[in-house]
Design a protein around this nucleic acid. Structure first.
Length: 492
RNA sequence: GUUGGUGUACUCAAGUGGUUAAGAGGGCAGACUGCAAAUCUGUCAUCGUGAGUUCAAAUCUCACCACCAACUCCA
């Protein structure tokens, strides 16, 4: 029996602001769309947090036995510089700055994005569509919105008529706004606009002569607005209505609000059943963002080449750090916090390694089934990874006590313990055991020899020699651990 | 200003009405050890402030203070 049949997953739905029992549209299948990156620069760690959470959600759905179609787009056109919709396409702007072709920018940062995800052990999404690959579909959707009277054309550009939409719908349903507030509190927008109202947003923009990225359309040679691509690509691959739409909380307004308006106008239906928004990652108490320069790149963490961290950290430590916090909470990133996570992570990995050395007894003195249930309960409660991890640390304690013979475990329970830990640590959280990736080598034999010599020295109470062996090995990064059954070691 | 959110120990961070307020890091004490390390055990918070609702509140309500985010591109 699939695990999802015995696990009642609850998801916090941003739309209703409450945790709801997850019921997919089609039993056993999950459709999930996540707003991907705009490939005009390197993805930073804050971007990664969002994708990492959805990677874990994806992994947990798979673990539960769901068939998942996970769609995460690449925005490679149409992202305007400001809300006046007067700005320049971000990709094109970057291309001009770097004196290269727009598609060269797209290629460069798409490759970088994939490299980072690979380094951080992400599962690839089922479909990774690009905006430029769906120009035709976007034009078709815009036509329908126009036909239905919720958009208007001015000078070759097409805008969504928010006020018209709001007559029969609630524009702001997701972000808790209403249009009147928005009108009353509009900031001074300089520059002239073709829009009837400042709240309207572009579906299609006519390209200026100098603009390189352009496609023919019934209205002008131009390019699509930012929001339309997600409406098109999500519904194309997941249907007019689908289960989950995710993204960073900063996309809630206006981007996701616009998506809802477009889809609802187009199909007459609310497109998404569960909206999931991840919270921001802070650096030095401020939001991590490219625009302010307050950010760190994922690659810089791995190499240690940055001004924020004391040393390099592995991808799994960064993952572990992220998963120790709830995705809906603001998370503070710092060197100190990462160092603390690293120590905990190593402790967890050591325990997993020790799991293989435990010999089972006839019966158990610990309750493995109820511990296992607690792990699932944590994940079923809106993907509560920090609570899951706290349970994993309970098992770490158990494992260490088993190793010391202070607790006992039956063969069956030991098997469950191993299976469960491996499932959550590797399959669901996506951690890698990159702490001890040393394969057996000649050095191992040499270290074993030194351990043997040290034991002889200790038996003869030759503390000077035994300590010399221990300390000099430590200086080389080999730490000896004296246990009741002899000496083991770890390397770093 | 409008909207949304946060404020829990030295640090990071769970917990959203009811036994002793998770977990990690860190500190202290003890066990083990020749001494360390590792490991084990114990210990270190009444939950921003003030009031209210309730038999019962970190958890609900109100006010206040502080901080963050969205309202402009942003995961």
């Amino acid at each position: 029996m699939e695990l999802y049949k015995e696990n009642q997953l609850k998801i916090y739905n941003s739309l209703t602001k409450s945790k709801e029992l997850f019921k997919p549209l089609k039993d056993g299948y999950v459709g999930m769309y996540v707003c991907g990156p705009t490939v005009y620069s390197n993805a930073h760690l804050g971007n990664l947090r969002t994708f990492m959470f959805f990677d874990v959600a994806f992994r947990y759905f798979l673990h539960l036995g769901y068939k998942v179609r996970y769609v995460r787009n690449i925005t490679d056109v149409g992202h305007l510089e400001n809300d006046a919709d007067e700005g320049e396409d971000r990709i094109a702007k970057k291309a001009r700055l770097e004196q290269i072709e727009p598609m060269e920018v797209v290629q460069k940062y798409t490759v970088d994005f994939h490299n980072v995800l690979s380094q951080y052990n992400f599962l690839p999404p089922s479909i990774e569509p690009t905006a430029t690959g769906h120009i035709v579909e976007q034009i078709e959707m815009i036509k329908i919105i126009l036909d239905k009277g919720f958009a208007y054309e001015v000078n070759g550009s097409v805008y969504f008529d928010v006020l018209e939409y709001n007559k029969t719908n609630h524009y702001g349903i997701l972000s808790g706004r209403n249009i009147e507030d928005s009108i009353n509190n509009t900031r001074d927008l300089d520059g002239q606009s073709d829009k009837k109202n400042p709240q309207d947003f572009a579906l299609w923009k006519k390209a200026e002569d100098k603009h390189i990225m352009r496609w023919p359309s019934p209205w002008s040679d131009g390019f699509p607005g930012w929001h339309i691509e997600c409406s098109v690509m999500s519904t194309k691959y997941l249907g007019e209505q689908f289960d989950i739409h995710g993204g960073g909380i900063d996309l809630k307004f206006p981007h996701h609000e616009c998506e809802i308006a477009q889809c609802k106008t187009w199909s007459g239906k609310d497109p998404v059943n569960y909206w999931i928004h991840t919270n921001m990652l802070l650096l030095n108490g401020q939001k991590m963002a490219k625009s302010t320069g307050n950010f760190i790149l994922p690659g810089e963490i791995l190499t240690g080449k940055n001004t924020i961290l004391s040393k390099a950290f592995s991808a799994s430590v960064v993952r572990f750090f992220n998963m120790q916090a709830n995705y809906r909470s603001v998370l503070d990133f710092s060197s100190k916090a990462l160092e603390a996570s690293e120590k905990g992570y190593i402790k967890l990995m050591d325990a997993i390694k020790n799991l293989d050395q435990i010999t089972p007894s006839k019966s158990s003195s610990i309750d493995v089934p109820s511990w296992r249930k607690k792990c699932y309960d944590a994940m079923n409660d809106d993907f509560n990874t920090p609570v899951l991890i706290s349970h994993l640390f309970e098992s770490v304690k158990c494992i260490n006590q088993l190793k010391e013979g202070k607790e006992q475990i039956s063969p069956d329970d030991l098997s469950v313990l191993k299976t469960t830990i491996n499932a959550f640590v590797y399959d669901v959280l996506g951690l890698l055991n990159d702490v001890k990736e040393e394969e057996p080598s000649k050095a191992d034999g040499a270290i074993e020899l030194l351990i043997k010599l040290r034991k002889e020295a200790r038996d003869q109470k030759n503390w000077a020699l035994s300590d010399q062996i221990r300390d000099e090995l430590a200086a080389l990064g080999v730490q000896l651990k004296d246990g009741r059954d002899g000496t083991t070691y770890t390397t770093n």
